[in-house]
Amino acid sequence: MKMTYTQKDLPEMAEKILKNVKSKVILFKGSMGVGKTTLIKELANHLGSQDTASSPTFAIVNEYEIPDDLIYHFDFYRIKDIQEALDLGVEDYLYSGHFVFIEWPEKIESLLPEDAVELYIRMGMDGTRTLTIDI
């Protein structure tokens, strides 16, 4: 599934993503600054979070409450190796049954569940984003 969007389309994109994914583990792939965290913020809002979602670049993981559930938002950009993720207990999060949104999942690829959904974001020359969902 492939969709092109702009900033104003984010609420509609969040709804489409959540209607089409079949896993609560969602992997966000794309270059630095392409809008992964911005899309995650919109997904958290759409799921009913009252928390202000922000990049967990330094904390590695942020937790957001939503009605009757949780979202764990990871950013693995800064980890040095897979052992660092294991030391954080990432496997417990991945198989918790809660939403898990992961930026830079390539860093922990061997740990990811088979049913995780991959989202690829690319920025166009005109500032639009193209989202490809591997469902």
Rank of each mutant, 00 (worst) to 15 (best):
T4C: 06
T4F: 03
Y5T: 02
Y5D: 01
Q7M: 12
Q7S: 09
L10G: 15
P11L: 00
P11Q: 12
E12V: 13
A14R: 07
E15M: 02
K16L: 15
K16E: 04
L18K: 13
K19G: 11
V21K: 03
K22V: 00
K22T: 06
S23C: 06
S23N: 04
K24P: 01
F28N: 06
F28C: 00
F28W: 03
G33L: 04
V34R: 14
V34C: 10
V34A: 08
K36E: 01
T37K: 10
T37S: 10
T38A: 12
L39V: 14
I40S: 13
K41Y: 07
E42G: 14
L43R: 03
L43I: 12
N45Q: 14
N45T: 13
N45E: 11
H46F: 01
S49N: 10
Q50K: 15
V61F: 03
Y64C: 06
E65N: 09
I66F: 04
P67G: 11
P67K: 14
D68A: 09
D68C: 06
L70I: 10
Y72R: 14
F74W: 10
F74V: 07
D75N: 15
K80D: 10
I82H: 02
I82L: 09
I82G: 05
Q83F: 00
A85V: 13
D92Y: 11
L94Q: 02
Y95A: 02
S96L: 06
G97Y: 08
H98A: 04
H98V: 04
V100H: 06
I102F: 02
P105W: 00
I108D: 10
L111C: 12
L112T: 03
E114V: 08
E114K: 14
V117M: 03
E118V: 07
Y120C: 02
R122N: 13
M123F: 06
M125H: 15
T128G: 06
T130L: 05
D134E: 04
I135W: 10
